[in-house]
Every structure is written in structure tokens, then in C-alpha cells.
């Protein structure tokens, strides 16, 4: 555990609390992509298969259970409690291509051609693009509530912070997980435009608005 990994994980945790806070305080899931949220459930379920057989490190296990539990809970909130506020008409990104493409990448790139390793690789490729339906929804609406942009930023910062973590581990421990690193870099590139607008507008106290 190094400072970058810890900050990345804390950023991931923060993103979930921000999202739950947004839904509860505004009593609405407007502006949140159900499709992205569903992809995250798939990401965590396929990545944390090792919860079934261990090893169960306390920190990792608690976090894994939290990420699975909270993502399922958000889906539940969106599907039932706050269903009328869901922008279903605009939230129509074709996730089939993301799932299919990630599966092909997982078949091509994996540490071993076993079910759990292919699923682990699949989860990383899928996570790298899972925010696309959310960013697409943002593009369609052209603006976003500030709290929603904080959520997206914290979620993106998690993987961005993992990049210096991987550099640190490569130098200090001689350890590199190439699939995670490549997928993490792709994920950060996917977020690049969003980060740019976030830093140039939201941080300066302006509303998140995309050019028409």
C-alpha cells in the first residue's frame, strides 16, 4: 500500500458517498446514467470473484464488498425509489458494444486462459469504458449539477491515482500488472475531456456546461 493507491481508493469511496448524497438530497437521480451504474455492477461482480475463494485480506475484502453492495444499492434506488427522475430517453448509449468489446479484449489479453482470469481482465477493460454512457448523457443534456460532476471527477480520479501507484510499485517492487495499467491509462484518457472542463469550470466555481 502506498499513498497513491490509498488516495485512489479513498477517491473511489468518496465518489460513491457523493453519488448517494446527490440522490438523497435532491431526491432525484436525474443526470445519472443507469447504464453506467449497471456496468459498474458487472465490473465489480466479475473482478471480485476471488471473494469466493480468497485470500481474504481484510482491507481488500471490506472494500470489495462495499463496492459491490453500494453499486447494487444505487441500481436499486434508480430502478425503484427514484425511478421517475431517471432520464431514460436520453440515457440510451449502446452498452452492448462496450460489453462485447471488453469481452474480446479479455479473451485476447489475460494472464491465463481460465474463467477467473478472463473475467478479471474483462472487468478492467469494461471499467475503462463504463463511464461512457454517463459522459454521453452529460453530452446530451449539455450541463450537469455540480454535485454530479464531483461524483464523476472522484470516480475518474481513482484510476488516475492508480497510475502513479503502478509506477511506484514497478520501481519499488518490480511488479507490473500490464492489463490493469493499459486499461487504467485508457480509462484516464476517456475522462480527459471531462477533467478539462471540470478543472477549467467547476473548480473555478462555474456551472458545468459544454459548448453547444
Amino acid at each position: 500500500m502506498n499513498i497513491f493507491r490509498l488516495l485512489g481508493d479513498l477517491s473511489h469511496l468518496a465518489s460513491i458517498f457523493i453519488l448517494l448524497h446527490k440522490i438523497r438530497t435532491t431526491k432525484s437521480c436525474a443526470g445519472i446514467s443507469f447504464r453506467s451504474q449497471a456496468l459498474y455492477v458487472l465490473v465489480y461482480l466479475t473482478r471480485y470473484l476471488d471473494l469466493l475463494w480468497g485470500p481474504w485480506l481484510l482491507y481488500n475484502t471490506v472494500m470489495k464488498l462495499f463496492f459491490i453492495g453500494s453499486s447494487v444499492y444505487v441500481l436499486y434506488l434508480m430502478k425503484f425509489d427514484y425511478k421517475p427522475s431517471h432520464d431514460m430517453g436520453l440515457d440510451n448509449f449502446k452498452v452492448e458494444y462496450l460489453i462485447g468489446g471488453s469481452f474480446v479484449m479479455a479473451l485476447l489479453f489475460n494472464l491465463a486462459f481460465t474463467f477467473d482470469e478472463v473475467m478479471w481482465s474483462f472487468s478492467l477493460w469494461l471499467e475503462s469504458v463504463a463511464i461512457l454512457p454517463q459522459l454521453f448523457l452529460l453530452q446530451r443534456t449539455g450541463e450537469a449539477e455540480t454535485i454530479t460532476t464531483h461524483y464523476i471527477f472522484a470516480l475518474g480520479a481513482y484510476r488516475a491515482l492508480y497510475i502513479p501507484n503502478w509506477l511506484y510499485r514497478w520501481v519499488m517492487e518490480g511488479r507490473v500488472e500490464f492489463i490493469a495499467v493499459f486499461a487504467g491509462i485508457i480509462q484516464t484518457i476517456v475522462y480527459a475531456d471531462f477533467f478539462y472542463v471540470y478543472f477549467t469550470k467547476v473548480i473555478q466555481g462555474q456551472k458545468f456546461e459544454l459548448p453547444a
Binding site: 473511489h12 476471488d50 485470500p55 485480506l57 472494500m63 463496492f67 494472464l111 478479471w120 492508480y162 500488472e177
Partner: peptide, 10 residues
């Protein structure tokens, strides 16, 4: 080494 086979990140 064996540890390297375990995915220890989130």
C-alpha cells in the same frame, strides 16, 4: 513469485 499471481488491487 507466487504473490505476483494474486491481484491485490481494487
Amino acid at each position: 513469485d507466487e504473490l505476483a499471481d494474486v491481484h491485490d488491487e481494487l
